[in-house]
C-alpha cells in the first residue's frame, strides 16, 4: 500500500512539475508532429493507397513516441539535470531513474505521445486529402489495451537508456541515433519485418494500436495474451535495470565525458 501511495505521490509531483514547462511541452508536440509529417506526408503523397499508409504505419508512432519520451526522461535525468545539479537533489530524495520515469509518465509519456499521435493523424489526413474521421481508430478495446500496455514500454526505455547514460560517457547524439532501433516493431510493422519482430517486447502494444485500425498481423486473441506476457517481462526487466543503475550510480557516480 505504501508503495502504491509513493507511486501516486510521484505522479502528482510530476504533474506539478510539468506545469512549469508548458511551453516546452507545446514545442515538443509541434516538433514531433511536424517531423512525423515530413515522412508520412511525403509517403502519403507518393503512395497509391494513402489510407493504407496511415493505417499501417502511423499507429506505431504512438508507441515509438512513448519510447522516445522515456529516452528523453533518462537524458534529462542523467545529463541535463546533472549539469544543473538537480540529479543529486533527486537522488537525495530517493528518486532514482525508475521513480523519475514514474513521475514523468503521465505528462511526458502518455499525454505527449497521445496528443502527438492524434495531431499527426490529422495533419497526414490533410496530405491524403481524406476527412479526419477516416483516420480515427475504429476499435476501442485494442486502443485502450495499447495505451495501458505502453506504460511499461515508457518505463523500460527510460531505465534501459538510463543505465547506458549512467554507466558510460555516451553522448546524447549517439543515444538519439540508438532510439531508431525502436522503430522496428513499432512504426515498421511485423508485416514488413517478419516474425522476428514478435520477439521485441515493444511490438505488442504497437500491434494492438494497429489492431484498432484492423491492420494487425497477429490475431487479436493471441495478441492480448502476448501483450500480457510482454508487459510482465518489461516491468520485471525495468525493475532489474533500475536497481543495477542505482547501485552503479551510488558506487561510481554518474559517468560523463571529461575529455
Amino acid at each position: 500500500m505504501s508503495r502504491l501511495n509513493r507511486m501516486l505521490a510521484l505522479v502528482r509531483i510530476g504533474i506539478r512539475l510539468a506545469r512549469l514547462f508548458i511551453s516546452s511541452y507545446v514545442s515538443i508536440i509541434l516538433s514531433s508532429v511536424f517531423w512525423g509529417v515530413v515522412i508520412f506526408g511525403s509517403a502519403v503523397v507518393f503512395s497509391k493507397a494513402p489510407l493504407q499508409v496511415i493505417y499501417l504505419y502511423i499507429p506505431g508512432m504512438f508507441v515509438f513516441a512513448m519510447i522516445s519520451g522515456g529516452m528523453w526522461a533518462a537524458i534529462d535525468y542523467f545529463r541535463f539535470y546533472f549539469h544543473q545539479g538537480l540529479t543529486d537533489m533527486f537522488l537525495e530524495c530517493g528518486v532514482g531513474i525508475l521513480e523519475y520515469s514514474i513521475m514523468t509518465l503521465l505528462i511526458d509519456g502518455l499525454l505527449i505521445s497521445f496528443v502527438t499521435f492524434i495531431f499527426m493523424l490529422f495533419v497526414t489526413a490533410i496530405y491524403a486529402n481524406v476527412p479526419i474521421v477516416e483516420v480515427l481508430p475504429r476499435h476501442y478495446m485494442p486502443l485502450i489495451a495499447s495505451v495501458i500496455s505502453s506504460i511499461p514500454v515508457f518505463i523500460f526505455s527510460s531505465c534501459l537508456i538510463g543505465l547506458l547514460l549512467a554507466t558510460t560517457p555516451i553522448e546524447v547524439a549517439w543515444v538519439n541515433m540508438l532510439q531508431f532501433i525502436f522503430l522496428l516493431g513499432t512504426v515498421i510493422p511485423p508485416q514488413i519485418l517478419g516474425e522476428f519482430s514478435l520477439f521485441l517486447p515493444w511490438t505488442m502494444p504497437a500491434e494492438l494500436m494497429r489492431a484498432a485500425y484492423g491492420t494487425n498481423m497477429i490475431p487479436l486473441s493471441q495478441l492480448y495474451v502476448m501483450d500480457l506476457i510482454s508487459v510482465i517481462a518489461m516491468t520485471a526487466l525495468s525493475i532489474i535495470l533500475a536497481k543495477i543503475c542505482d547501485r552503479q550510480v551510488r558506487k561510481k557516480g554518474i559517468t560523463i565525458r571529461r575529455g
Binding site: V38, A43, S47, K48, V53, Y57
Partner: peptide
C-alpha cells in the same frame, strides 16, 4: 527520412 519515405510508399504501392 529519405529512405523511409520511399520504403513506406513502396511497401504499399
Amino acid at each position: 527520412f529519405a529512405l523511409s519515405i520511399i520504403g513506406i510508399a513502396m511497401s504499399v504501392s
